[in-house]
Structure formats: C-alpha cells, structure tokens
Write a protein that binds this DNA or RNA. Structure first.
Lengths: 212, 212
DNA sequence: GGGTAATGTGAATAGGCATTCACATAAAGG
DNA sequence: CCTTTATGTGAATGCCTATTCACATTACCC
C-alpha cells in the first residue's frame, strides 16, 4: 500500500531520523522501533536498507564526521587571517551543535566507542585530524605574529576543542539550560585574550551576562 | 553458608564494584548481574542494600562528586600561590581520572543524565560549584598580579576544565591509547603560558614528545 | 541459648529489544 | 502485459536485564 523509495533515499532518511532521536531523547532511546517510527516505516523495513543497527551507527558516524570536520577543514584551507579562521571554525562548530544536539551525544557515546571498535577507531582518527587542522592554522598564526610566539600549536588546538566540547556536553546534560551561542561567545572572547599577541593590548571590559 | 556483612559495608562494596565495571567495560556493561558478581554476592542480594539500580547510580554519583570536587575545594581553600593551587588541582584531577577511568564515563554518561533527572541536576550543580571554585582562585590570582589582568575568571576556569574533560574523554574513548599524565603535563605547560602575567617572560622551549 | 531481624540465595517473572520469516505489492524492464 | 526484483509489512523468535519471591542461615540481643 505505501509508496516505495529506493535504498539511497531510505538510508538518508534513516540516518537523519537517528540523529534527531539522539538529539531529543539520547542514544539509549535509539531503538529500531523508534527509528522506524520516525522515518515512517515498519521495523522490518529498516533491515532492507541496513544490515543491522551497527551499520546505521557507522553511517551516522560518517555523516557527522563529514559535517563537523569537513567544514572546519574547508575554512582552514580558505583565505583570511588566523584569528578570523579560528573564530569562524569555533562559531560554526558551536552553531552546528546548537542545531543538532545529537552530535556531541553521539560522538562521546559509549554505545559507539565500546560497542564498535572499528567505528571508534574511525572517529578517533577524524578527531585527531581535526586537532591537526587547527594546529596548522595556529602554527601559521604564530609565524605571522598574530598569535603569541610562546604557544604550542597542538596543545592550544586541544584547549580550544576542549572548550567547545565541554560546553557542548554541559549544555546537552542540562538539556539546554543556557544559551550555547552566548556561552560560546564569552568563551571565545576570553580565549582571544589568551592567545593573541600583545602588540595591540586588548582593553579590559566586562563580558556580557553570565549564565546560571 | 557465606559470611554476612552489614549494609554500610555492602553499599560501599557495591559502589566500588560499579565504578570498576564502568572503568573496565563501560556504563552499558553495568548490569545487576555484573555488579553482584564483582562484589561477590547474588543478584538478589543487591536489593537488600539498594532499592534498585537507580539508587546505586545515585550513590556512585555522590561518591564521585565528593572525590573530585571535594578535593579541589580543599586545595583551593588551602595555602599557596594561585599558580600552585591551579597546578595541583589540575594534576590531581588528571591523576584521579587515570586511576579511575570510570569517572569521566560516568559523569558524562547519558544513562545518568537522561535516565535520572534528579541525579542529573545534582551533578550539574556540583559541576557548577567546581567552576565557581576555580573562578575564585583565578580571580584571586588576577588581583595579586600572578595572572593576566585581562582574563575573565569564569571563562578561564571553564577552559581549564574543558581541557581536562576533553582529554579524559579522548583517553577513555581510545581506551588509554596515550599517557594521560604526559598529555596533561603538556597541556598544563601551554595553559600556563596562556594565563601567566607577562612579568617574567617564559623562555620558548619545545614540549616533550607528542602522542599519537 | 532462644528468638528476632538482617543478610543471603536460586528460581521465577516480566518487559524491552534486535533480528528473522513468510508473505505482499509496487516498480522497472522487456 | 508479464516477469523479475526491490521494497514493504505484521507476527514470531530469542536474548538480555531488572526486579520479586519463597525460602535459608547468620549475627545479634537479652
């Protein structure tokens, strides 16, 4: 009775449904029945398009990796000053998370890391690549004198990412109790003061409104 | 046949068993059967000491909060310079995690945050308290001139915590593929350069051995 | 030492979940 | 138009897990 769609389309629908479910109810709510319901099909039909739940997770992992890290790599490779690039990457990442709360939940979910060693390795690799991309941008900024010469690029990159991820997790945990964008803005302002070369000393201001 | 112990002792044994299991196999492996086996008792006996699994998680949450944040608060209240205090808190935290891999897994586990709103609120509160404690230490350091005057205390504290948590999660995810202590050391060296007042300029050195 | 309460156990019970099966039916190609 | 293949479904199946129950046995109190 219901119309039919080919596997290519169905796979995308299923992956998107999965991402939404994780964002709204968490990884533990990611059951076949839930996915099938959200994607508008029967449980059994899921298996026409994916070998099993594991394969869905792998596809979701690929999608998320591409969305987050692909974007950052594009910005890094483009034109602009180091500070502009870092700022855009940071804000894009925060915005992407704000729009898809399932993102950090999935990336740091144990379901993935302990349940599927292959997927875990892939994600860890992408994460290392992300750090590498940021490191390169930071190293370039040090060379041009935009950033302090005393910085270690890799550690500074890790610190920046940690800032994002920690805040994303706190936001996810508290189920959006504060504005992710506003918090990201405050953190970025502060980070800028930490890394910027002292040539043009930043005037001391107060940061806007603190959250709860 | 087996000897009997009172509830006080049993509760501690059960909580410790749970923490170990999470560290070794993850939160998803935290079943009643697994806990009972590790603690040397029958499944049914667990229910003599806890009302249910949820109550075990709550007790574990209290234990971990006390271990991590209680320690930091103690250090913060003690004597020493700001940089010494921050350094000790940072290293203690990293060491505690290295000794108990279950710690970050539990704190950021969805099983807790989405499964038990009450517990989630408690943990979020403790986390906010931790940030507050660090902020106070940092604010004091700014006043004495040890730290740059341009820092925002709360955002700097969040950055420090993010650095720890992100690294702990990456370490946990990769199942200990790198040395947590060594990485913490590198990150701390870099962070020091970020926050320290420029009175005694740090000589430029290279950081020891990078991990994978 | 006898009774009572706390602690201990193996064997149900019940629910949730991923996956499979036998059977439709739409789509595509000739 | 008819065959073949891809897509679709409801109803099992079987496993894993938390929790309960009826029945011991130890520890403690007087």
């Amino acid at each position: 009775m219901p119309p039919k769609k080919n596997t290519q389309i169905r796979r995308k629908e299923i992956v998107q449904a999965a991402l939404q479910i994780i964002g709204e109810k968490g990884v533990h709510a990611l059951t076949i029945t839930e996915i099938a319901g959200r994607a508008g099909m029967s449980d059994a039909n899921i298996y026409r398009h994916f070998k099993g739940k594991q394969e869905i997770l792998e596809a979701l992992g690929d999608f998320i990796s591409e969305a987050v890290m692909g974007k950052a790599a594009g910005i890094a490779a483009g034109n602009g000053s180091t500070l502009e690039k870092l700022s855009v990457i940071f804000r894009s990442h925060a915005a992407l998370i704000a729009a898809n709360p399932g993102l950090p939940r999935f990336i740091f979910s144990e379901e993935i890391h302990l349940g599927d060693p292959q997927l875990a390795k892939t994600i860890a690799g992408k994460m290392a690549g992300y750090i590498e991309t940021l490191s390169t941008v930071i190293a370039a900024g040090i060379k041009t004198g935009e950033l302090r010469s005393s910085l270690f690029p890799r550690e500074t990159a890790t610190t920046l990412l940690g800032m994002i991820q920690f805040t994303a997790l706190r936001w996810s945990i508290t189920r959006g109790a504060f504005s992710l964008d506003a918090e990201a803005e405050r953190l970025w302002n502060n980070f800028l003061r930490l890394i910027q070369a002292a040539s043009s000393p930043t005037p001391t201001e107060t940061n806007p409104m603190e959250p709860v």
